[in-house]
Design a protein around this nucleic acid. Structure first.
Lengths: 197, 197
DNA sequence: TGTAAGTTGCACAGCAGTGTGTAATTCCGA
DNA sequence: TCGGAATTACACACTGCTGTGCAACTTACA
């Protein structure tokens, strides 16, 4: 009965991925039931909850690292290397998309996004209009660009928290970056933001 | 003794903000102790843990909404409006920076970022080189740009998860967007990515 | 067809956290 | 300096989760 054990182990990991997405605090019992297995069996494969999640993350991180390395090998132009890296990482990260999103999805985050819904809609409208008028250029639809805008802001907040970015001008930098991410030429974006009060 | 109650309530909220940052699962007891108060007292102000966090988020969300509205009032150019919105939101969101970052900082996220450290460093090196060679243009230092790169990717993954973005070409879109966010002209970025295998 | 790996069912100890009750105490403000 | 709101110190019941132990069972495969 060697094959069944391996298959169960794999299935448990797959299901755990999905289950932890729905609820980052999903209990071992929830995961076990979802995998069509008894809690005790999960402990037969992973000695602890932490070990299970560790195995999940290890899988993902290893794959991402390998994809990046393969993508940039021998490429000299940094822009092209960056693009290749993203493409490469994306492809395999796609399988772990749910795991990544797990991180963003704390109960708290749910609440925050829900309550910021009006602001998000307003921002999306701005982007939509900008795209329609040709002021912005992007392969992304406005809704997706809104995700980018939000994440750029959150990301730079995090950068400030971590001491990587000085707080004084971080706001302006965030503005410039969001604009350029939306396809506005960098110099134009910088100039525009610099002109603001 | 009306003043003391109000002051305590405020202090509890302030401390809760900081404490929940350090540990999103901080217990009511941890929060109470950190606020120099007994657990029972916290329950005197907020009927439940959920209510406490709710009050926190409500405060933040309300402030953000107001800042956005004030920033875009009467502005017609969408680019300028977007920039103003970000600047305005940033200013007040800065106070709630910690609360926002709470969302990104699940235990799981910690583990993920830690294990992706090699990839992050490699990416940062690319960005640094690109900036030095003038291929990229950005007001942000390479380290901060790395946060942007990461968040753009995570954000678009989320967008795909939420059905806002089609998965097929999401990778290329992510690449283009990260490049333009780094200051590469939009057409050049699109062309470059389109040329890739 | 035996047998051993794998699975199940159940039971248990332990722990951490939540929310509530109550009597005693502190201390602000009138 | 008095009255009363607020805070404290305990104590309690309850819930849900973790990790472990063990005997009984299924089933692949040698």
């Amino acid at each position: 009965m060697a094959g069944r054990a391996d298959a169960n182990r794999r299935r448990i990991m797959d299901v755990a991925l999905a289950e932890l997405l729905r609820d980052p605090d999903a209990s071992m019992d929830q995961i076990a039931r979802a995998a069509g297995v008894v809690r005790r069996t999960v402990y037969g494969h992973f000695p602890s909850r932490e070990a299970l999640i560790g195995a999940l993350v290890d899988d993902a991180a290893e794959a991402v690292g390998a994809a990046h390395a393969a993508a940039v090998r021998g490429v000299t132009d940094p822009a092209e290397a960056l693009a290749r890296s993203i493409l490469g990482v994306w492809e395999i990260a796609d399988r772990y998309r749910l795991l990544i999103s797990l991180a963003q999805r704390s109960v708290t985050m749910e609440g925050i996004l829900k309550r910021l819904e009006p602001v998000r809609r307003a921002g999306a409208a701005l982007l939509r209009r900008g795209l329609k008028e040709g002021r912005f250029t992007s392969p992304l639809p406005a809704d997706a660009l809104m995700y980018v805008r939000e994440q750029v802001i959150f990301g730079l907040m995090q950068a400030v928290n971590d001491g990587v970015l000085a707080p004084e001008e971080a706001g302006r930098s965030a503005a410039v970056t969001t604009l350029t991410a939306s396809g506005l030429p960098a110099d134009e974006a910088a100039e525009l933001v610099a002109r603001l009060p």
